[in-house]
């Protein structure tokens, strides 16, 4: 691994998270330029971004602590999950966090992520050549299968429960 000048990993994670929320702020501002009717940027937005940053840091901390345990379920539970749970608990305890975080436009969070996702797969595009067209066809049905399966069961469940 090519680590940058030996910054401790938690500092690096904190900086990357800072980059992430900065990009969200940038996206939300740009969105406003093109569409003045979209979610405004105000002090609540900044508070919301700070909360997102904080919960992410806490989630990383929990995940790293649990990595030392020997309980497989806890050890293998993804960081992403811990961050959601941390945020959920904090938002249940304090309404302020809900108000603040919802001042951050949802779709502005997604654009920077998918930008990074696109760059991250750049070197794997060549791997596509190693997969056969048959598997590609199967992939389509596998994706349809999981989504349609869940959607139909959910629809059925909601109907039965009278919702």
């Amino acid at each position: 691994m090519t680590e940058k000048q030996g910054l401790p990993s938690y500092v690096k994670y904190a900086l990357i998270l800072l980059l992430s929320i900065t990009l969200i702020l940038f996206t939300q501002s740009i969105k406003l330029v093109f569409n003045p009717a979209s979610t405004p940027v105000n002090s609540m937005t900044i508070a919301g971004l700070a909360s997102l940053w904080l919960f992410s840091v806490i989630g990383i901390g929990i995940s790293q602590l649990l990595n030392k345990t020997h309980i497989a379920v806890l050890k293998n539970f993804p960081i992403l999950g811990w961050v959601s749970i941390t945020s959920l608990v904090m938002c249940l305890l304090f309404d302020f966090f809900v108000t603040a975080i919802q001042a951050v436009d949802f779709l502005s969070i997604t654009t920077p992520i998918l930008t990074f996702a696109g760059i991250s797969v750049a070197d794997r595009l060549v791997d596509l050549r190693r997969t056969s067209w048959k598997v590609a066809i199967v992939a389509v049905f596998v994706f349809i299968g999981t989504y349609l399966g869940s959607a139909l069961l959910a629809q059925f469940g909601l109907m039965v429960s009278g919702n």
């Binding site: 990357i16 992430s20 997102l52 992410s56 990383i60 945020s87 975080i101």
Partner: peptide, 9 residues
């Protein structure tokens, strides 16, 4: 890590 704020949202 870039995705974590989304998960927090």
């Amino acid at each position: 890590f870039i995705m974590l704020p989304l998960m927090a949202r």
